[in-house]
Design a protein around this nucleic acid. Structure first.
Lengths: 163, 163
DNA sequence: TAATTACGTAACCGTATTGGTTACATATTA
DNA sequence: TAATATGTAACCAATACGGTTACGTAATTA
């Protein structure tokens, strides 16, 4: 899960950069910036699309774009989008949840731990819910490298316009 | 990571149950209760011992026992104990952290995301730091199944005394 | 002292997951 | 109609993990 989340957030950040220019961004250029494969990007974009965070457009000039403004998309939205049925829970008890352990004391411990793990997960999600893509962008522009940020923005819109 | 944490916490909970009776608990009996293999238990106990949460005793009548009272051991202590160098971080950027991506905008996004991910992780850890093994035990005894809890406690001390 | 117990650790295996890659059908644009 | 780009399946290699066996070593106990 962890790398998927980071990559997905990265993708969303790039799409947020390109959000002003109305042209979609293709998986090829995102993959190149991330140093990965276009199919990997498309797979994640597929999950993001299923969660209605991005829309995609087929055909020439196609690609992905955000469905709403970056300040309306939290990092929790992204996490929820890429969560898979195979990721039951960040703190899943996994193989412990079997019949062998379902004697009294075992199941009692389990339910107790699940409460605590659930609280920890909630705390994490609450934090992620408080950060939006817009926050990421403004942090980038303010703190890290303002002039490169401006240059990158114009580069990006140029890239997405040209192809 | 996630299963390791859950299993380790389970192990610690069992050791906490046995903490009053001064006899250590062997990996065999813990593994049996958890429906797993003694070696798996010993591996985790090895990490817990390295973090000075448990001590182990070799030889006949040996096993593991807590180094301090359950109310002095937080779930964060356990998480920290079993964190491995290969688990750099819950939100690690993984394969993104390569040279290809280290152009200006990419590295800016990364540092921004790392801040946010770090905050989320901190929130989670803070929650775990607030829960002790004693809390787990009392939750088990109070909420879930008081009479079984009492029975299990006496069973456990009997088990660890007899072998 | 000898036998038993139990840990510590290495080694190996099967499985699951993941990311990377190729390939191709489909849709959209020009 | 040609070019572009997505959607998706399929396959591969690498990694991680849990399970298991095996064995050396230490401590107890008879």
């Amino acid at each position: 899960m962890n790398s998927r989340f980071a990559v997905a957030t990265h993708i969303m950040a790039y799409l947020a950069f390109a959000h002003e220019g109305n042209r979609p961004t293709n998986s090829e250029s995102i993959a190149q910036k991330l140093g990965t494969n276009p199919v990997v990007v498309r797979r994640l974009i597929g999950s993001l699309r299923a969660a209605d965070l991005v829309r995609t457009q087929l055909g020439a000039g196609g690609g992905a774009s955000l469905t709403r403004c970056p300040d309306k998309i939290s990092l929790l939205d992204i996490l929820d989008a890429i969560e898979q049925p195979s990721d039951p829970d960040l703190f899943a008890l996994g193989s412990i949840e079997n019949d062998v352990c379902s004697h009294h004391i075992g199941s009692c411990i389990q339910s107790s731990l699940q409460d605590i793990f659930g609280a920890a997960e909630e705390a994490m999600k609450k934090e992620l819910a408080g950060s939006t893509l817009a926050d990421v962008l403004s942090q980038v522009s303010k703190i890290s490298c303002p002039e490169q940020f401006a240059a990158a923005q114009s580069n990006l819109s140029a890239t997405t316009s040209v192809g």
